[in-house]
Design a protein around this nucleic acid. Structure first.
Length: 648
RNA sequence: GCCGACUUAGCUCAGUUGGUAGAGCAGCUGAUUCGUAAUCAGCAGGUCGUCAGUUCAAUUCUGACAGUCGGCUCCA
């Protein structure tokens, strides 16, 4: 039969392997970097092992190179197998479970009496490299399901047996590499020589099939690349990510700290960090007023009876803090919605009053389990940029669309990468089918109208309604949920919210819960990492610092500082008796955007010598010119309905 | 909450095979007036995470607890 490879045709006998076909076209040197092949048959595309016989009727072969995305995934998946083989050589009693490739590498979970630790890595890596150096082939065999179960049962591999039992197929495929055979769909790289650039990274506990009721397994994480150079580059990038860690930067920049012995999981905002936060809050409050929100604020404590009525006491009690005052029990609010509904109920509402959009920078407390706290990204006390929109069912889609626009504007402003998911009805949910359908439809319609790519998380919605979640990516590729839009038709019911319709009758409003930054703490944490601490000028707590060289410049420096302050610039002056180099270094480490040097020369000529934090020197400038530069960069970023700036 | 590692000065880290501890940076004081990422000297700073146990003696060994870090699960 005839197949096309990279634009050229090759004639191959029926039943030939992919490798034979590729050899006819691809040069020997390039072929060495091919790990598998994509086979196209009509619209169908399958990834195959190089030594697999070509299926009848295939038209095009695409070689999968080691350094492509597909190739990398195969290398990592294969590395997981080879690592398992290495582990089994050293720890024969460890039972293999599963070992997939992930975005940043791979892992393999083992059931073993003594969990692995990094001290075991040297030995495992040594074995791994020996296996790689041996260039052992991966060989595939296909067995009837029952025969495979029998075989793994004999080999005392209960997890493999359980896996096969859950597979709905007549046959399963096995891959053998050295003395280790694993259940696997494949494909794999041709031989272990492809997984030489490999590094074990960490260990972790994990549950069998991710369920905490199941047995605990010992997980080993690692990563692998097409070559040593790419691996080294990745490890360097991880170092860089560590450097950008917001916990480290927060301390170095004097933005915030944690005092674990006093209040674990709760932030102490230091003057600089708080100034930055207040600037962000001010901007955000104004933006909400501009977009038709009303600012409200509810109490921090509500009587327990109210939480019982809302269902929080029943569903959320474990995460709540309670306190007794005289003889009454109070719950500290974990969410802001109840107060907002009570504000809605303060007056009789007409359909003409809707939508009501209540916005609050609401401080909430949630008792998160101790193991999950993580700097600013996961805390126990945080501030949500929370809003609740009460509207008619007809208004729902339009309101959601506006919220999506706000999300797009905010993420665009900072240039964040994000992912969107629509979560649908979970198993244990309340509400009618019609209500769920209407709400889910409105969410999807709105996302599509906004032209956004999204995925569906089936069954992942809240118990009271479906939601849209937006996840931001941090500097090492971890995802953090920030924005959320949830449609709720239950709480308005429980609290008997009504509006009078055009027909004069009472109707139930729909409630949209939404947060854009999600929590200020988390958002600021991601922001700090995103900018590696060098915040955009409009957010920088200290926009400029005047640096003196000799005492003779002090008066001129302080005058320049006063003038800048009068022009609305956040500026400090460093007149300490230190060398200029020392002051520049400190300003640089504090990531101050503008360093303004005033020495004897400037004291005489007037003006300041401008150095930027990227190292550029702008030379002598007048104080007015510097102020104009900073103001141009720090103008409020949203203005009159559009975005003015994108801070890269 | 679960698994693993860890917890010594504000920060980064040494150290004591059981006899209550040290460096650099930061801080304070003084000298130095020095032009774009570190001037020099001196001083001060620690119940060695908390509570128990073993011991003549515990920061060191054992246990429990708390917290941190990396994951799991959960979540903004």
């Amino acid at each position: 039969m005839t197949v096309r490879v990279e634009g050229r045709e090759a004639e191959v006998p029926s039943g030939a392997t992919a490798e034979t076909a590729l050899r006819a076209v691809v040069s020997g040197k390039k072929l060495k970097a091919v790990v598998a092949v994509n086979v196209l048959r009509g619209a169908e595309k399958t990834l195959l092992d190089l030594d697999a016989p070509l299926p009848e009727g295939c038209e095009v072969l695409e070689p999968v190179y080691a350094d492509s995305a597909d190739g990398l995934r195969l290398i990592r998946h294969s590395a997981a197998h080879v690592m398992a083989a290495a582990v089994r050589r050293l720890f024969p009693q460890a039972k293999a479970t599963i070992g997939p490739a992930i975005d940043t590498g791979f892992y393999y979970d083992f059931d073993t009496d003594n969990p692995f630790s990094v001290e075991d890595f040297d030995a495992i890596e040594k074995e791994l490299r020996a296996l790689a150096a041996a260039r052992l082939p991966f060989t595939r065999e296909t067995l009837p399901r029952e025969a495979a179960i029998e075989r793994f049962r004999k080999e005392n591999e209960p997890y493999k047996v359980e896996l096969i039992e859950s597979i709905d197929a007549d046959t399963v495929s096995l891959y053998t590499c050295g003395e280790f055979t694993d259940l696997c769909r494949g494909p794999h790289v041709p031989h272990t020589g492809f997984v030489g650039a490999v590094k074990l990274l960490s260990t972790a506990g994990a549950y069998w099939r991710g369920d905490e009721k199941n047995k605990r397994l010992s997980r080993i994480y690692g990563t692998a690349f097409a070559d040593k150079k790419a691996l080294a580059a990745y490890l360097k990038q991880m170092e860089e990510a560590k450097r950008r860690d917001h916990r480290k930067l927060g301390r170095e920049l004097n933005f915030f700290n944690f005092q674990e012995d006093v209040a674990p999981g709760m932030v102490f905002w230091l003057p600089k960090g708080m100034l930055m936060r207040v600037i962000l809050e001010d901007f955000w409050r104004r933006e909400h007023l501009r977009r038709g929100y009303s600012m409200v604020q509810g109490p921090q404590l509500l009587r327990v009876e109210t939480w019982q009525k809302s269902g929080h006491y029943e569903h959320y009690r474990e995460n709540m803090y309670f306190t007794d005052i005289e003889d009454d029990a109070y719950g500290v609010k974990p969410m802001n919605c109840i107060a907002h509904m009570l504000i809605y109920k303060n007056a009789m509402r007409s359909y003409r009053d809707l939508p009501q959009r209540y916005f609050e920078l609401g401080v909430v407390h949630r008792h998160e389990k101790s193991g999950v706290l993580h700097g600013l990204l996961r805390v126990r006390q945080f501030t949500q940029d929370d809003a609740h929109i009460l509207c008619t069912p007809q208004q729902l889609e339009g309101e959601i669309l506006q919220v999506i626009r706000l999300i797009q504007d905010l993420m665009g402003l900072f240039g964040f990468d994000y992912k969107i998911a629509v979560s649908t009805r979970p198993a244990n949910s309340i509400g009618t089918d019609e209500a769920w359908e209407m709400a889910t439809g409105a969410l999807i319609q709105a996302v599509e109208k906004a032209g956004l790519a999204y995925e569906i998380n089936a069954g992942d919605g809240a118990f009271y309604g479906p939601k849209i979640d937006v996840r931001l990516l941090d500097c090492i590729g971890r995802e953090w949920q920030c924005s959320t839009i949830q449609v709720d038709f239950t709480l308005p019911d429980r609290f008997d919210l009504v509006y009078i319709g055009q027909d004069g009758a009472r109707h139930r409003p729909v409630m949209v819960h939404r947060a854009i930054m999600g929590s200020l703490e988390r958002f600021i944490g991601v922001l700090i990492e995103h900018y590696a601490g060098a915040l955009p000028i409009w957010l920088a707590p200290e926009q400029a610092r005047v640096l003196t060289v000799v005492e003779a410049g002090d008066d001129a420096a302080l005058r320049a500082q006063d003038e800048l302050l009068a022009l609305g610039i956040r500026v400090t002056a460093d007149t300490r008796n230190e060398k200029l180099g020392f002051k520049v270094r400190e300003a640089q480490m504090s990531k101050v955007p503008y360093m303004l040097v005033v020495g004897e020369k400037e004291a005489q000529s007037g003006g300041v010598n401008v150095r930027l934090r990227n190292g550029d020197n702008m030379g002598l400038k007048s104080v007015e010119d510097v102020a104009a530069l900073i103001r141009a960069d720090s103008e409020e970023p949203f203005r009159q309905g559009g975005m003015r700036y994108r801070f890269a």
